[in-house]
Simulated scan of single mutants.
Amino acid sequence: MASTGLIGQYQLSLFEDLSLTAGLRHDSNDIFDDATTYRLTGAYNFRPTGTKLHASYGTGVKNPTLFELYGFTNTYRGNPSLQPEEAKGFDIGVTQALWGEIASLDVTYFNQEISNLITGSGQTSINLPGESEIDGVEVALTVRPMEGLTVTGSYTHTDARDSTGAELIRRPQNLASLVVNYALLGGRANVNLSVEYNGERKDWVWTDPFYMNRQTISLDAYTLVDVAASYDLNENAQLFGRVQNLLDEEYYDVWGYRAEGIGAYAGLRLTF
Results as ranks from 00 to 15, higher is better:
Y70S: 06
T95E: 12
L239P: 00
D253S: 14
T150N: 11
A264M: 06
F32I: 07
N213G: 02
T207A: 12
P129N: 10
I134Y: 02
I217H: 12
D208R: 10
Q11R: 10
E147T: 13
S177W: 01
T75L: 09
T41Y: 06
S3G: 10
G256L: 10
T152Y: 02
L193W: 07
G58V: 03
S104M: 03
R269T: 09
L12S: 07
L117R: 15
D220V: 08
T152F: 05
Y265F: 14
V191G: 00
E260H: 04
G8E: 04
R25T: 10
T108R: 08
Y76D: 03
D27L: 01
S154G: 13
E249S: 09
Q215L: 12
F110S: 09
P172T: 04
I31R: 15
L20M: 11
S19L: 05
I169V: 15
D30F: 01
A22D: 03
S154L: 06
F15Q: 12
G186P: 02
F32A: 04
S28F: 08
E68K: 08
D106N: 13
R214Q: 15
G267I: 00
A229F: 00
Y222T: 05
S194A: 14
F110T: 14
T124I: 05
L6N: 13
G186F: 04
G42C: 01
T164M: 11
D162E: 12
L14W: 07
G93T: 13
V107S: 06
E260R: 11
I92D: 00
G100T: 08
V179R: 08
G122K: 03
Q112K: 13
G23M: 07
V61T: 07
N190P: 01
G50C: 07
A221N: 15
P145E: 08
D162S: 11
R171V: 15
F15H: 09
T216K: 14
G42R: 01
W255A: 13
E200L: 09
E85C: 03
E250S: 15
L175E: 11
V61Q: 04
D232T: 08
T73L: 04
G263S: 15
L193R: 00
Y231W: 13
R144W: 02
Y38H: 14
L246T: 00
N74M: 04
Y231N: 07
L168Y: 08
V195L: 12
V254L: 14
Y222S: 11
P64K: 04
I134F: 09
P80G: 03
T216H: 02
S218P: 02
T119Y: 10
Y10A: 09
L98F: 13
D33V: 05
S28Y: 03
A2C: 10
N45P: 00
N190L: 11
Q123E: 04
L128A: 06
I92P: 01
N127G: 08
K62F: 09
